[in-house]
Design a protein around this nucleic acid. Structure first.
Length: 954
RNA sequence: GGGCUCGUAGCUCAGCAGGUUAGAGCGCACGCCUGAUAAGCGUGAGGUCGGUAGUUCGAAUCUACCCGGGCCCA
C-alpha cells in the first residue's frame, strides 16, 4: 500500500480575514472610532438628503444615572428602525433628546448640598442642577453611542436649552390664547413642618397609629321623610330616633372641612336601630359592613335590630344631612348631601365615606364631579383658619383629633372610637405626617370647548386617537381609557428646577397671562434662558414697549414663582425638534415603553392638539419591560437587576443588540446575564456562516466569474430561491417592526439552509473542482449573492459585525464604504421557482431517509463519514423514480454527501439500503468513486481530481 | 380594587377566521468528522399548549371564572 499523499495544497480551501473569533469588546470601539472619524452619520444625512423623510422622534430619557436595560431596549429598537428606513432610501434623521428639568435632579442636588442649600437662592440651586443634568447627558450620550446607535449626538435637544424653553412657551401661548389655561384650587401633599407642597418622590411611608372613629351625621328632616317613603324605616322610628348616616374616618380633623357623604351606587344599604347613651339611633350602613360596625360599637345582641329592607346607594343620592359641629355654610356651593362614588369599598369603614374636597384627592375628584366647593380651612402652618367653629380656630390639625373626638362624644355623634395602625405618608425632610391641603394651581382644561372647533381637548384627543396607528393595536384602547378618565392637567409645580410659568400678578391679585405676554417672555428667554425669570424685572421680561392691559402697570407687577410640570416640557418636544425645523408633523413614529401611554404619548398629544390642532405622531409603537428569568419585576433591591453597562462590556454591543432583536418586545422580556449570554450562540452561528461564505469567495470576481442563472446547478438555484424567500420575509418583518421574526428568519436560514445543507454539500465542489470550473463558479455566484444580501439584511441589527464583513468583501453590490450607506437587498421576483420547490420537498424527504439509514451504519461502526457509503434506493414509486432521474443520481449523492446512489426499480415498497462502498477512496476528495486508480500517474485519485491536479501542474 | 396586557417543550419563537399524531431553531443526550476546527455534520429524547368549567361532533385556538406575572392608576 503506497503511503498516503496529502493533496491539501491542491484544494481551494476557504481563506478570509474575517476571523472566527469576534472579539467584539475590542473590535467594536475601533469600528466606532472609524465611523466617527469618517463622520458616517453625516455622510448618511448627506446621501439621503432630498429623499422622503421618515421621522422617528426620540422621547427624551431623564438625564439621571447610568443607562439601564430599559434604555438599551428602547434605543436599540429605535436604531433598528432608523437604520432599516435609511437603507430603504428614506431621509431618516435621528435627533436624541434629554429631559433635564424636574424634581429627581433637584432633589439629588439638594441632598448633595446638604445644609449649604439653606443659604442658596433659587438661581444658585438651578445652576447646580444644570451642571448635574449636563453631566448625565454627556454620560448617557456616550453610553448610547457605545451601543452602536447613530444619531445627531453632537446636537441633541435638551429641555433646558433656551431655544427649547422658548418653544415650550410658544406652545403654551397658543393654549392660553384658546382659554385652556386656568387657575384652580387642588389638594396636594403638604408638609406642615416645612410649610411646602411635596411631590410624590418626597414622601416616605411609615406606619402610624391613628384614631379610628365612627360618626353619626344626622339626616335632615325632609330626607328622613324620603327614607320613610322608601320603606327603610317606620314613621315611629323616624320620629323618636336620631336618624343618621354613619361614616368612618381616621382623620377626625378633616371633619371640619366635610362637605358631603359618599355612597357606592351599587352597594346595598340597611338601617340598624339601637340605643346608645340613652338615645335611640337609626343609622344607615352598608349591609356588608353591619357585622363589623356592630363589633366596633360593642352592641349587645338583642339590643339592636337590622332592617329587612335595603336600598342601593344610588337611591340615597341627593339626601341631606346636618354637619356634626359646623353651623354655617362653609362655601358658596351646595353642601352636606349624599353623593355617589364608585371607589368605595367594603373592606373597612361603613360603606359611607366622609368627603372633604379640600383635603383628599378622591374627595376632590368627587367634589368636582358633584359641583361641591373646595373648602380648606387650614393655613400654611397647619393651623385652622378663622372660618372654623370658635373652639377649633388656630389649632394645629395634627394635634386636634382628640379634641374633636371629645366634642363628638359630648354631642352624642360618636358611635365608636378605636385606633388603627396604617401606612401613612410623611415628609422626607421634617419627618412629620403629611396632610392634604388645597392650594392654587395652574391647569390645562380638558373639557373646555376650544374656539372654532366646538370640541374640547378631550373630545379632540379621543377622536384623533382613532386615526393613529397603535402598535400593538391595544395601545389605542389603553390611551382611550386614560383620556376618558383623566382630570384637568395640573401643570404648575412649586419648585426651582424648571421652566417658570410666565404669570405676573398685580397687587389686586389679578393675573397677567395672555398669548402676547407669554410670547414676549419667550422672546426674552430665547436670548437669556429661563434664569432671566429670576433675575430680570417684569419690565425687562416683557419688554418696555409691551402693551399692558388696563389695570396693570410695571410698578405694580410681581412674578409668580411656579414652574411647569416637566411632562409639559417633554410634551412639546415635537414642536421644538420637528415642527419648528419645518419637518413634517405629525411625525412618522413615536417609540417608547408602554408606560408612556399615560406619560409622553398622552402629554404630547394634548399640547399638540391644543396648539396646532394636529396630533404629533402618525403611529406609536410601544415595548414592554425587562423582567427576571422568572418573569418578575427587576430591581436592585431584589438582586435580580441586570446592569446594562456590565453586559455591554462583557459581551459587546452586537450581542446585546442581537438579544434585543431576538425577543418579542411587545411583551415582558425575560432578561438576565445568562439569557443575554445565550445570544452568543446565535451570533457565532451567523458569524461563521458569513465567514464561510467570505472565505470561499476570496478568488471570485462576480464581474468576470459569475455564471448565468440558467447555467447554474440545481442546488445553487435552490439556494438562491431560499435567499429570495429570506429577503422578502425579512423585509416584510422589518416593515412591521417584527424584529424577532427578522432574527429567527436569518438565524434559521444560516443554520438550516446554509450550514446544514448548502454549505456542507458545496464543500466538495468548492474545494475539489477546478478553481475556475463552471461548477465551482456556479456555487460561488450563489454564495456571493447570499453573503452580499445577508450582510445588508443584518446591518440594522449587527451594526458592527455587518460593517466588518462589508469591509472584507472585495466585490459588493454597491460601491459604498459602509454597509450603512448601502440599501436593502431586493428579492428577485423574476424567477418562478415554485414548480421546482415541490420536487425539492420530496428530494429533501428522501435525503432525510437516507441520512437515517446512514446513521444506522455509523452506529454499527460500518462507516464513519457519509462519503464511505454507497446507497441503493429500491422504489416502485414512479414519481420518485422520475424525480431521481430528473434530479440526477449524482446530484442526489452529492446532496447526501455520499459517494454513490443507485436506484433499483420495481421494488414492492420504497426501501433504502446502504453499505460501505466497494470502491477505493480518492485521497484528494475523499470520495469512494469507481474512477479511483484508473490513472497510473495518480493511482490514489479519482478522474475528476486527476484532471484538476494535472491542470495545476501545467 | 380598577384599566390595559401576558402565560405553548430547559431557552427564544411559530401555530390561534376551531379540525388529521402541537411545529422550528437553539440547548441537551448520543454518535461522526478533523480540508469552516475554541468550527462542521447526523440521530434522538423533550410540551397536551398556566388551571378549571363551558360552547362544539371537535379547542392550544371561542366564552366564563380562577391562578401567576407585567405596565399604569387607586
Amino acid at each position: 500500500m503506497p503511503e498516503k499523499k496529502s493533496y491539501r495544497n491542491t484544494l481551494n480551501l476557504p481563506k478570509t480575514k474575517f476571523s472566527m473569533k469576534a472579539n467584539l469588546v475590542q473590535r467594536e470601539p475601533q469600528q466606532r472610532n472609524l465611523w466617527s472619524k469618517e463622520d458616517i452619520y453625516g455622510k448618511i444625512r448627506e446621501r439621503q438628503s432630498g429623499s422622503e423623510f421618515y421621522i422617528l422622534h426620540d422621547g427624551p430619557p431623564y438625564a439621571n444615572g447610568d443607562i439601564h436595560m430599559g434604555h438599551v431596549i428602547n434605543k436599540v429598537l429605535k436604531d433598528f428602525v432608523m437604520k432599516y428606513k435609511t437603507m430603504c432610501g428614506y431621509d431618516a434623521p435621528y435627533v436624541p433628546g434629554w429631559d433635564c428639568h424636574g424634581l429627581p435632579i433637584e432633589s439629588k442636588v439638594v441632598a448633595e448640598l446638604g445644609r449649604e442649600v439653606r443659604q442658596m437662592n433659587k438661581l444658585e440651586i438651578r445652576r447646580k442642577c444644570a451642571k448635574y443634568a449636563n453631566k448625565y447627558v454627556k454620560l448617557q450620550s456616550k453610553q448610547f453611542q457605545e451601543l452602536g446607535i447613530f444619531g445627531d449626538f453632537d446636537n441633541p435637544y435638551l429641555t433646558f436649552q433656551p431655544g427649547y424653553e422658548a418653544g415650550i412657551l410658544e406652545v403654551f401661548a397658543e393654549l392660553v390664547d384658546k382659554g385652556l389655561v386656568h387657575k384652580q384650587l387642588k389638594p396636594i401633599h403638604w408638609s406642615v413642618g416645612c410649610e411646602t407642597a411635596l411631590a410624590e418622590a418626597e414622601l416616605e411611608y411609615k406606619d402610624i397609629t391613628s384614631p379610628s372613629i365612627f360618626v353619626n351625621f344626622l339626616v335632615s328632616e325632609k330626607s328622613i321623610e324620603k327614607l320613610v317613603e322608601k320603606g327603610l324605616l317606620g314613621e315611629e322610628a323616624a320620629r323618636n330616633s336620631k336618624v343618621s348616616f354613619m361614616i368612618w374616618t381616621t382623620t377626625p380633623w378633616t371633619l371640619a372641612a366635610n362637605l358631603a357623604v359618599a355612597v357606592h351606587p351599587g352597594l346595598e344599604y340597611k338601617v340598624i336601630s339601637y340605643e346608645q347613651n340613652g338615645s335611640r339611633f337609626v343609622s344607615i350602613i352598608a349591609a356588608e359592613r353591619l357585622e363589623a360596625v356592630i363589633g366596633a360599637g360593642n352592641l349587645e345582641e338583642a339590643k339592636y335590630t337590622v332592617s329587612e329592607k335595603s336600598v342601593t346607594g344610588a337611591e340615597l343620592e341627593g339626601l341631606r344631612y346636618k354637619h356634626p359641629f359646623v353651623e354655617e355654610k362653609p362655601t358658596d356651593e351646595d353642601a352636606y348631601m349624599v353623593i355617589c362614588a364608585t371607589y368605595i369599598t367594603t373592606e373597612d369603614g361603613t360603606g359611607l365615606v366622609h368627603i372633604a374636597p379640600g383635603h383628599g384627592i378622591e374627595d376632590y375628584v368627587s367634589g368636582q364631579q358633584n359641583g361641591l366647593g373646595i373648602y380648606s380651612p387650614v393655613n400654611d402652618d397647619g393651623c385652622y383658619d378663622d372660618t372654623v367653629p370658635a373652639w377649633l380656630k388656630g389649632k394645629n390639625v395634627l394635634e386636634v383629633d382628640s379634641q374633636i373626638n371629645a366634642h363628638l362624644r359630648e354631642t352624642g355623634a360618636l358611635f365608636a372610637e378605636d385606633s388603627i395602625v396604617h401606612s401613612y405618608p410623611h415628609c422626607w425632610r421634617s419627618k412629620m405626617p403629611v396632610i392634604f391641603r388645597t392650594t392654587e394651581q395652574w391647569f390645562i382644561r380638558v373639557d373646555k370647548e376650544m374656539p372654532g372647533t366646538g370640541k374640547s381637548l378631550r373630545d379632540s384627543a379621543l377622536e384623533q386617537v382613532k386615526d393613529i396607528k397603535w402598535i400593538p393595536e391595544w395601545g389605542q384602547k389603553r390611551i382611550t381609557g386614560m383620556l376618558e378618565s383623566r382630570p384637568d392637567w395640573c401643570i404648575s409645580r412649586q419648585r426651582s428646577w424648571g421652566l417658570p410659568i410666565p404669570v405676573f400678578v398685580n397687587s389686586e391679585g389679578q393675573a397677567l397671562l395672555s398669548k402676547t405676554s407669554v410670547l414676549a417672555v419667550a422672546a426674552r428667554i430665547v436670548k437669556k434662558g429661563s434664569d432671566s425669570w429670576f433675575t430680570d424685572t417684569p419690565e425687562e421680561l416683557l419688554g418696555a414697549d409691551f402693551e399692558l392691559p388696563a389695570g396693570f402697570s410695571f410698578d405694580d407687577l410681581e412674578k409668580e414663582e411656579n414652574i411647569f410640570d416637566v411632562w409639559f416640557e417633554s410634551g412639546c418636544s415635537w414642536y421644538n425638534t420637528a415642527y419648528k425645523k419645518g419637518w413634517p408633523v405629525p411625525v412618522d413614529l413615536y417609540l417608547e415603553g408602554s408606560d408612556q401611554h399615560r406619560g409622553w404619548f398622552q402629554l404630547s398629544l394634548l399640547p399638540a392638539l391644543g396648539s396646532i390642532g394636529k396630533a404629533p405622531y402618525k403611529s406609536v409603537l410601544t415595548h414592554g419591560f425587562t423582567v427576571d428569568e422568572k418573569g418578575m419585576k427587576q430591581s436592585k433591591s431584589l438582586g435580580n437587576y441586570v446592569n446594562a453597562q456590565d453586559e455591554v462590556s462583557k459581551y459587546g454591543a452586537d450581542i446585546l443588540r442581537l438579544w434585543v432583536s431576538s425577543v418579542n418586545y411587545q411583551e415582558d422580556m425575560r432578561c438576565n446575564d445568562e439569557l443575554i449570554g445565550k445570544s452568543q450562540d446565535a451570533y457565532r452561528k451567523i458569524r461563521n456562516t458569513i465567514r464561510y461564505l467570505l472565505g470561499n469567495l476570496n478568488d471570485f470576481n462576480p464581474k468576470e466569474d459569475a455564471v448565468d442563472y440558467e447555467q447554474m446547478l440545481e442546488i445553487d438555484k435552490w439556494a438562491l430561491y431560499h435567499l429570495g424567500k429570506l429577503i422578502s420575509g425579512v423585509l416584510e418583518s422589518y416593515e412591521h417592526f417584527a424584529f424577532h421574526r427578522v432574527f429567527s428568519l436569518v438565524y434559521n436560514f444560516c443554520t438550516v439552509e446554509m450550514s446544514n445543507v448548502y454549505m456542507d454539500v458545496l464543500k466538495d465542489r468548492l474545494y475539489c473542482d477546478g478553481q475556475d470550473s463552471e461548477s465551482r463558479r456556479s456555487g460561488q455566484t450563489a454564495m456571493n449573492r447570499i453573503v452580499d444580501s445577508l450582510v445588508r439584511l443584518l446591518a440594522p441589527i449587527l451594526v458592527h459585525t455587518a460593517e466588518e464583513a462589508w469591509l472584507q468583501m472585495e466585490y459588493k453590490s454597491e460601491d459604498v464604504g459602509s454597509v450603512h450607506l448601502a440599501s436593502m437587498p431586493e428579492a428577485d421576483e423574476s424567477i418562478d421557482y415554485k414548480p421546482r420547490e415541490e420536487n425539492w420537498e420530496k428530494i429533501m424527504e428522501m435525503r432525510d431517509k437516507v441520512l437515517v439509514v446512514l446513521e444506522g451504519l455509523r452506529q454499527d461502526k460500518k462507516i464513519a463519514s457519509n462519503q464511505e457509503a454507497s446507497v441503493t434506493i429500491y422504489s416502485n414509486d414512479e414519481e420518485m423514480k422520475v424525480l431521481l432521474d430528473d434530479f440526477g443520481l449524482a446530484e442526489f449523492a452529492a446532496l447526501c454527501i455520499v459517494s454513490e446512489v443507485k436506484l433499483q426499480k420495481g421494488a414492492e415498497e420504497t426501501t433504502i439500503v446502504a453499505e460501505k462502498s466497494k470502491h477505493q477512496k480518492c485521497q484528494r476528495c475523499w470520495n469512494y468513486w469507481p474512477s479511483v486508480g484508473r490513472n497510473s500517474d495518480y493511482p490514489d485519485l479519482c478522474q475528476r481530481c486527476v484532471k484538476v491536479v494535472e491542470q495545476l501542474q501545467e
